[in-house]
């Protein structure tokens, strides 16, 4: 089973929930950190890293001796990665999505491809080898997270319990992270901001057609907006995590949810069971 943990709003507790879900598993588990712009699950899982591999993407290289300066490549590019003023194009490789269109439209075969690094994937284990931690990390200054996320996902298999820690928001990196998940947990908080972004996340997951439910973090402070919304939209609330000072203290030391609120362990052990059974609203 692959469960992706996502949220619209950042800072709601995605990593807290994803780490807790992984730790609560009594079987071998994989924690896949797809929040590649700021992967932080490792702070709490403390894996021993045994291997790191580079993520490479292909970007165009212009052979100026073949280029006839027609500008077709630049007109084709939707990402402003190529710019031509009837000159051989300027190439902004960090804007390139590696779609290959410029090569197709080039009438003189002046475009070839070179590989450039955009990030890295690390492989490690924690909790005596029971948990495998696969972490994607986008290079500082990089702007394209999806290739790094794709490479993390390429390591995942269907035969082991897997938790995907997704980036916040609802844009391309999130869509990439949620793809192929069997189930999505949307983490939110009981505030107007949490509700606003939860609605966007719900729209996104409904579009993908993946079954999902909601985790409300710090449910006992804030307002009832999220509860009311979930009730009216018939969205199951899987877990309500209370607001506790102990949680902030544990978090600041790199501790996990169960260090602070031990009674949550049974609740989290139950999540995969509830998902398997199918959720009744």
């Amino acid at each position: 089973m692959r469960i992706a943990v996502a949220s619209g709003k950042g800072g709601t507790g995605k990593t807290t929930v994803a780490v807790a879900l992984t730790l609560a598993s009594q079987e071998p588990a994989v924690y896949a950190d797809c929040d590649v712009e700021e992967p932080n699950g490792s702070i709490f899982l403390r894996p021993e890293v045994d291997r790191v591999e580079k993520v490479l993407v292909e970007v165009p290289e212009i052979d100026e001796s073949k280029c006839n300066a027609c500008g077709d490549c630049a007109r084709f590019c939707q990402f402003n990665a190529l710019v031509s003023f009837n000159t051989p194009p300027l190439v902004f490789s960090d804007l390139c999505h590696s779609c290959g269109g410029c090569e197709l439209v080039c009438p003189t075969g002046a475009i070839s491809w070179k590989k450039v690094p955009v990030g890295e994937i690390s492989f490690g284990t924690s909790n005596g080898g029971r948990i495998s931690v696969i972490q994607g990390k986008l290079d500082v200054g990089g702007s394209l997270a999806p290739p790094v996320i794709r490479q993390v996902k390429a390591q995942l298999t269907d035969d082991v319990f897997t938790v995907v820690d997704s980036p916040p928001g609802t844009s391309c990196p999130v869509i990439e992270s949620l793809g192929e998940a069997d189930y999505v947990l949307l983490v939110t908080e009981a505030t107007p901001f949490g509700l606003h972004d939860l609605k966007l996340a719900v729209e996104t997951v409904r579009e993908l057609g993946t079954p999902f439910s909601v985790v409300i973090n710090r449910f006992d402070e804030g307002d009832s907006g999220v509860e009311d919304y979930c009730a009216s939209e018939k969205i199951h609330i899987m877990v309500r995590i209370p607001h506790r000072r102990e949680m902030a203290e544990a978090y600041s030391r790199g501790g996990n949810l169960f260090d602070a609120i031990p009674e949550m362990l049974d609740v989290f052990r139950n999540i995969p069971v509830t998902i398997e059974k199918g959720v009744e609203v």
Binding site: F79, V83, F92, L95
Partner: peptide, 14 residues
């Protein structure tokens, strides 16, 4: 725009 605003704006100016 997500990325490339400066590139596109410069082309608009040109």
């Amino acid at each position: 725009a997500g990325q490339g605003a400066g590139v596109q704006a410069a082309q608009n100016i040109a």
